[in-house]
Design a protein around this nucleic acid. Structure first.
Lengths: 258, 258
DNA sequence: AGTGCGGCTTGACTTTTATCAAGCGTCGGC
DNA sequence: GCCGACGCTTGATAAAAGTCAAGCCGCACT
């Protein structure tokens, strides 16, 4: 369905649109539309031509990739997040598959509209560049996480990140199925179970999706979270699940507000 | 030293400057200078404040990162490559350490000049966005390479990529020390040696830095190179259309940025 | 209530990767 | 020339991660 004025007004202040003028905004979303998808819908397969920029407004989306009968999860997005922005800017094929994990509401903006708006409005184009840069840095963090830490350390840091995101309480709730989490962390579901067992020594107890962190300092001693890898302070706002406003100057400690 | 007019004229047509007008170019490189560094110079450490965009004109640079006494190589750059572009756009701290591997010539452009030029010239800003997008996609490829393939498969694909880059001859020359290559491929030097042994069955023989690929089809059967992960066709600029085809970034040697 | 499916866990086992410890060869300095 | 450093290789061993198989539990559906 085409975009209703009330939806447009809502979107007007999200993501990089905040930096745009009204005229540029209209140009950028020209031809865009809102769509709802049920859980499990494949929005885009890797290798597909990319015609739209996607902006997740409700629900959640998994970005993944496969090779030789293996599959892995690269990121899990929550609102408000853009995705496949880089492919849109380059008018190139998708490198990732996008699948809804829940019923989701997604704004689809024609790539051509976005590119035209970028080329005509430097302010807006710069805002998109900032978004791209944030996504890029999210990926750098992800690679460091995978190349420098083993699976138990990745889990420990994931738990601490969730703790920070969920308000620092003693108990957190895993936002996804464990099999999805395992894939995101680059391990098998079996090994995720075993990694949770190992973290019992650091005061981690699991009950379904509820995880209690009884000895945070012990967990931190093992996890050694780093502002150069983890991003506890990010809004869940952009492509690869990491920071949008990269505000880490002077942040050395794992505690902070949302 | 300040930039001489002859240097500026040379740089004028490199990277995203190609898309700029003369006025924007002057603005973008205002305050920039050329500098030569010996091998092994640390240009920037992770966590440092980033004041300049770096553009590698000669030599080679390793981008790496460390955690808990471990270190890894994220990319190896060859001319002409920009690096730490994302940090410059966001005016944020570096997430990677940059070290020269050989004597190198590097153009250093004040971040503030670049950002100002981007904000004033949409065409130029879009070209920078394309560069950022290419870097982003290089990292996506890199993560897929690491999460989906084991170390022998990564080596096999690295060899095939080098073969394509070096003209498809039966013999290739490894462009870096094996210990650097091992770090780039996410393995220890010991395991790199053993991985080469395993590939003898696929016709791979090693003599120092010279590697012969006698049975390419057998090697390809094992490596299963994919255009969604590997980027064999990167370097030569496309003559027809899309001058901004993404070039090899981030992943195995090539262009990159932070 | 019963049934079946899917997600999760656990155990035994295999494969992959890292670690530790030699040993070899090359290169540059003395 | 000799020495020592360093990069690379090889072997033995240990740790990490994946695979296969079985079983449990909760949940939806009949």
């Amino acid at each position: 369905m085409p975009l209703r004025p009330t939806d447009a007004e809502h979107i007007r202040h999200l993501s990089f649109f905040r930096a745009s003028t009204d005229a540029t905004f209209d140009k950028a979303i020209a031809g865009g539309f809102l769509q709802k998808f049920p859980a499990g819908t494949t929005l885009l397969m890797e290798g597909d031509t990319v015609d739209f920029l996607y902006i997740l407004l409700e629900g959640s989306v998994e970005l993944g990739a496969g090779w030789k009968s293996k599959d892995t999860t690269l990121a899990i997005l929550r609102p408000v997040s853009t995705f496949i922005l880089a492919a849109v800017v380059l008018d190139a094929d998708a490198l990732m598959t996008a699948v809804t994990l829940e019923r989701s509401e997604i704004l689809m903006v024609p790539g051509e509209s976005l590119r035209r708006a970028m080329k005509e409005d430097a302010e807006f184009c710069f805002a998109v560049s900032e978004e791209l840069s944030g996504c890029y840095r999210g990926l750098v963090r992800s690679i460091k996480n995978h190349k420098l830490r083993d699976s138990t350390e990745r889990l420990a840091n994931y738990l601490l990140t969730q703790r920070a995101r969920q308000g620092g309480k003693i108990e957190i709730v895993l936002p996804h199925e464990k099999r999805v989490l395992a894939s995101l962390l680059g391990m098998t579901p079996e090994n995720l179970s075993r990694a949770f067992l190992k973290l019992q020594a650091q005061g981690v107890t699991v009950d379904g999706a509820r995880v209690r962190l009884e000895k945070v300092t012990a967990l931190e001693r093992l996890a050694r979270p780093s502002p150069l890898i983890d991003n506890h302070f990010a809004q869940p706002r952009n492509e690869l699940g990491k920071a949008h406003t990269e505000r880490q100057k002077g942040l050395l400690d794992g505690k902070g507000s949302a």
